[in-house]
């Protein structure tokens, strides 16, 4: 740790998080320079703080599954499905706009339970069914979306009590509620990953699933918990989306899957598993939001934004794979390890 100054800088930059911090500052600077009168305003800061938490929370869900070498492509389906569960409870069982805070909390609890159940479904498929996470969650995502459509007939559900707006639009101590929620979840996930046995096991499993099995790690339970956590994070994101839109619909947030994967990869999470830090994901979220809001101000269309996100995802992968080169080979070629010599 007492290296000479020059190598220390290069070693620092070898870390994806450090590189990302640099990129974030650059993006901020560029956007600020391009449109200082609109970008550098308190209004813009506030609007950004309300915008990003919903997909940032989805990115946390992707992060935890990616750490195990898996992925959860059903998060948007889960988010919408859970929002619809909550909104149906509010509008059909509860007296809609007149419903009290008790009903609201109950609907949130129902949404969280639905998210956990959906995650459990994924977890069972992956841990006990042995399905590859990509296909398991693609399939289950369709099912969740289908359920959401079936429950609503494809229309938006509206008519919530005024208190429902707080989660997406309210403020506490001058901070937007969604931002606070994201902050708490990110801090919580970071703590879980770095300070609990579960978090350590997630990373070890991601690094080498077979060795985890041989080290008597309870893999099935681990995977169940990971996908349940992912489902519950998606449910929270769904509730924030619902609150901000003041409605719930089966096809909200269609582009969020890509965005969430992009953020996780941008944040330095290794899609092959075993490495990833929440700090990186938070930096990636901020970078994306600066970029997104800058593009907004430059009146870049939604389509162009889609193009930029896709291109960015690939570009980040190209840069990051250089550090992962070794791991990639190992993972792809499980039989490549020479049996005898280890040199």
């Amino acid at each position: 740790m007492t290296a000479a100054p020059a190598p220390r800088v290069s070693r620092l930059l070898a870390q994806p998080e450090a590189r990302l911090a640099l990129i974030m500052v650059l993006v901020f600077a560029v956007m600020a320079a391009l449109a200082p009168e609109r970008f550098l305003t308190p209004q813009n800061a506030t609007s950004m703080a309300f915008q990003f938490p919903e997909f940032a929370i989805l990115a946390l869900a992707i992060t935890i599954t990616m750490l195990t070498g898996g992925i959860d492509l059903s998060i948007v389906g889960i988010a919408n499905c859970c929002a619809i569960v909550a909104s149906l409870l509010l509008t059909r069982l509860a007296p809609g706009a007149e419903a009290g805070v008790g009903w609201l909390l109950l609907s949130y609890a129902a949404a969280l339970a639905a998210g956990a159940a959906a995650g459990l479904f994924n977890g069972v498929l992956i841990a006990f069914g042995g399905l590859p996470p990509i296909l398991a969650t693609l399939g289950s995502g369709l099912i969740f979306t289908g359920l959401a459509v079936a429950l609503t007939g494809g229309t938006a559900i509206m008519g919530f009590p005024a208190s429902a707006a707080w989660l997406g639009n309210g403020s506490v101590l001058g901070l937007p509620v969604p931002l606070v929620v994201f902050g708490l979840l990110a801090a919580g996930l970071s703590l879980v990953l770095s300070r609990t046995g579960f978090g350590l096991k997630v990373q070890m499993f991601g690094a080498n699933p077979l060795a985890a099995r041989y080290a008597a790690v309870d893999i099935e339970r681990l995977l169940l918990r990971v996908y349940v956590a992912s489902g519950m994070l998606a449910a929270i994101a769904g509730l924030i989306i619902m609150s901000r839109a003041n409605s719930a619909k089966a096809d909200y947030g269609q582009s969020y899957t890509l965005l969430a994967v992009l953020i996780a990869v941008l944040g330095g999470v290794n899609p092959y598993g075993g490495y990833g830090r929440v700090v990186g994901v938070v930096l990636a979220v901020l970078t994306m939001q600066f970029l997104s809001s800058g593009l907004n101000m430059l009146q870049v269309s939604n389509f162009a934004r889609e193009l930029i996100w896709g291109a960015l995802l690939i570009l980040v992968m190209v840069i990051n794979t250089r550090t992962w080169g070794f791991r990639r080979l190992r993972r792809r070629l499980p039989t490549a390890a020479p049996q005898g010599e280890t040199r």
Binding site: I71, L258, L262, V265, L307, I308, W309, M317, T321
Partner: peptide
Amino acid sequence: LGLPTLIVTLGTLSVFRGF
């Protein structure tokens, strides 16, 4: 470049359409 196929095609899915 040896990138993972899912992530690349997820990216190009948007790039093609966006372009």
